[in-house]
Design a binder for these strands. Structure first.
Length: 715
DNA sequence: GTAGGGTTAG
């Protein structure tokens, strides 16, 4: 074992023994694991594929272990207790102690690959014109293109060919031209030609062609350099072929070529996109330990990764690292961090970071403002949203289509109707940002949630006139609004027209129709809405008919309910159940309503309804409809009554959470709850300290139960 | 888009 160890190649990814900067990686068990793994890899390395065995370099370096194999022990052992280690890594102060007798092994080249100098070409202008002519020709006709090539006005030198190759788009033309140069045999094909055409192919996401070209380079012994590898890797990444990206990175290591910082950060992004946070951190650490000073692009990759994970500690780590390494965030890093803060649920910190960005002299662009508008809308920070809006106007910050639409959505979230109307008019007047179906959807959302059915219908007519397609969300908003205003004629028409125009009703739209059914007082209206629903979800209509029929057994309802819930999108399951309960209550089928609440609980639709501690039992009805909340309260009171009657131990305090109904869509629950409690004379009072919360003491509740309950109570 | 890496919408 010992002799094997010493014989093992001193590969550049070997963990530096002296580095104390991130102690978690350098404990003895990890090192042993790494070493064991390396031996395994050395034994298996003769198992090379037929293709790679043709590659001299690769087969001559069988002892180079692969990168991911070296990472495996880290993720499989130390990193399996990830939480502890992560905390450790993200919070441990750095030590700069370095053992001078054991120099660090490098995992990347600190020198970025130099580009070969481009010789100045005196006929650039004419060649560009020629390339333009090629770009303009009918791209579907290969023969035309190839015959045009014969008219090249200058000799096909290396420089001339490169210039044209660089100017050709789309990728099909660059690829044709590349293949044509090869047939001309005017000069040897160098790496740069492959690199240029690969970049073009990457725009077309043609990974297979790139993969083939790369293998062709290997076969023809044309050197693959860092530019080649980074292009291959990023193309695979953009095609979501992450395994291929890592495969090529490993092939690079096996040939003994060191990645430079561009390739290295591209691979960091591959691991980041795979959600392999530990591997990214491990690579990052090793890079830094090799003396690499990561640039803003690397930090953007890290920030994006932590943002995706909603990992606030990770975001702090990125900020800390940049500070301690003296890297000033640029616009992209700020934008990525802003979005990450939003995802981590930190709107306040996003706001501070935005101020810091502006103060540091970085002018926000469309993306920064889009991200921030989204955050303020989601957080319902109307005041900040308004201020942002004013600043955008007064500073003349840039606007684009996405920003317009995001601002409209933000207005919809915050009920900012007038501002939305101004924006919408701005869009209509603009040249490049005319309202599209997304913009109309936001406006339908605003008018719909504000109960302005007439304006919403006007928009719908306008869309028909202008030929803007209505989408399923716009249709849902409009139908919800028309239902609340009981404009059933319009509702039916909107539904039918939308279906004709290709809207594919989803479960949310069905839920919306079902909620309208629960609102209909006239059975004729309900039947017309059900006829719409019949087109979209006949089985749901059948369930409504079943539950309305008193003689339907509980078992039958249960089975049908189970099947429907299983077939429904997760986000629409609870709304379905809420509406069904509401329908029962509006038809005085209270027993059925209780059955449905029970079934909803059984199938996990109300996971947080009850909460118990030693001191307090609470009922959280915030995600319930009014009818479902009534039912849940009745159920709870029934249970508590039994407890009181049996003299069982009860906590000091009881609370019911309705929420404050600040959101325009969810008004009324607190009011309805208060009215219901009053009707029952139940001792629940609105809690002053906790908004949207009703509380009752044990003593009051017991007194109340006893006063209502004639059944024998054991004192 | 002028040989390679990172950011924007229910």
């Amino acid at each position: 074992m010992a002799s094997n160890l010493s014989a093992a190649p001193d590969f550049h990814l070997t963990i530096p023994q002296s580095d104390k900067r991130r102690p978690i990686f350098f404990t003895a068990p990890i090192r042993q694991n790494l070493t064991k793994k390396r031996l395994t890899i050395s034994c298996n390395s003769s198992r090379s594929s037929p293709k790679s065995s043709r590659n001299l370099k690769e087969s001559l370096n069988p002892k180079n272990p692969s990168l991911s194999d070296q990472l495996k022990p880290l993720s499989a052992t130390t990193l399996s207790t990830t939480e502890d280690n992560r905390t450790h890594l993200l919070s441990k102060p750095k030590s700069t102690w370095v053992n001078p007798t054991k120099p660090r092994k490098s995992v990347l080249s600190l020198q970025r690959q130099k580009r070969s100098p481009y010789s100045l070409n005196p006929i650039v202008k004419e060649l560009r014109l020629f390339a333009q002519k090629l770009n303009d020709c009918d791209s579907s006709n290969e023969t035309t293109f190839l015959s045009l090539l014969e008219q090249i006005p200058y000799p096909l030198t290396r420089e001339n060919a490169l210039l044209i190759l660089n100017s050709l788009k789309p990728w099909q033309k660059a690829h044709l031209f590349f293949n044509w140069i090869k047939t001309q045999n005017s000069f040897p094909m160098e790496t740069i030609f492959y690199n240029v055409v690969m970049k073009s192919l990457r725009f077309g996401r043609q990974f297979e062609l790139i993969d083939n070209l790369a293998n062709e380079m290997v076969s023809n012994e044309i050197e693959l350099d860092n530019i080649t590898y980074s292009t291959i890797i990023t193309c695979a990444k953009r095609c979501n072929m992450f395994d291929k990206a890592l495969e090529w990175f490993e092939r690079m290591y096996k040939t003994g070529l060191m990645p430079d910082e561009v390739t290295y950060s591209a691979v960091l992004d591959v691991y980041a996109k795979l959600g392999k946070v530990e591997e990214v951190l491990s690579l990052y650490e090793r890079g830094v330990a090799s003396g690499w000073k990561p640039d803003p692009i690397t930090f953007s990759v890290l920030a994006k990764m932590f943002g995706e994970a909603g990992d606030y500690d990770g975001i702090r780590f990125v900020l800390q690292e940049m500070k301690s390494l003296g890297v000033q965030p640029n616009l992209v890093v700020y934008n990525t961090l802003l979005e990450a803060m939003g995802r981590a649920g930190k709107p306040g910190l996003a706001r501070s970071l935005f101020e810091e960005m502006v103060e540091s002299g970085v002018t926000p662009n469309e993306k920064s403002l889009t991200v921030l508008a989204k955050i303020y809308g989601k957080a319902r920070w109307a005041k900040d949203a308004m201020e942002l809006w004013e600043r955008m106007r007064s500073n003349d910050w840039p606007m684009d289509f996405i920003l317009f639409n995001t601002l409209l959505s933000m207005c919809a979230d915050l009920g900012m109707e007038e501002e939305a109307e101004r924006l919408f008019e701005d869009m209509k007047r603009s040249e490049h940002c005319r309202p599209d179906s997304w913009s109309y959807t936001a406006m339908l959302n605003i008018y719909g949630s504000g109960g302005n059915a007439s304006k919403a219908m006007d928009l719908f007519e306008e869309m028909s006139k202008l030929g803007v397609d209505i989408n399923v969300m716009g249709c849902t908003c409009l139908i919800q609004c028309l239902g609340k205003s009981r404009r059933i004629d319009d509702l039916v028409r909107v539904f039918n027209v939308s279906i004709e125009r290709g809207v594919n009703p989803d479960d949310r739209l069905c839920g919306c129709l079902l909620s309208v059914v629960s609102l209909c007082e006239e059975s004729e209206d309900a039947n017309r809405v059900l006829a719409c629903l019949q087109q979209a979800n006949p089985r749901l209509v059948a369930l409504v008919r079943l539950i309305e029929e008193e003689k339907t057994s509980y078992e039958t309802v249960k089975e049908e309910f189970r099947v429907i819930v299983g077939d429904t999108a997760v986000e629409a399951r609870r709304p379905f159940c809420n509406c069904l309960i509401d329908i029962c209550r509006s038809r005085n089928l209270h027993g059925r309503a209780h059955e449905l609440l029970y079934l909803g609980t059984l199938y996990g639709l109300y996971p947080d309804l009850h909460h118990k501690t030693a001191d307090e039992w609470s009922l959280d009805v915030r995600s319930l409809s009014v009818g479902a909340a009534h039912t849940a309260l009745e159920e709870w009171m029934g249970t508590l009554t039994k407890f009181v009657q049996r003299n069982e131990a009860l906590p000091e305090m009881f609370s019911a959470h309705t929420g404050t109904g600040t959101h325009r869509f969810s008004q009324g629950l607190a009011n309805a709850f208060a009215a219901h409690v009053e009707k029952l004379s139940a001792p629940f009072r609105q809690c002053e300290e906790r908004a949207g919360c009703f509380v009752a003491t044990r003593d009051d509740l017991v007194t109340w139960v006893r006063s209502r309950s004639p059944s024998p109570i054991i004192a």
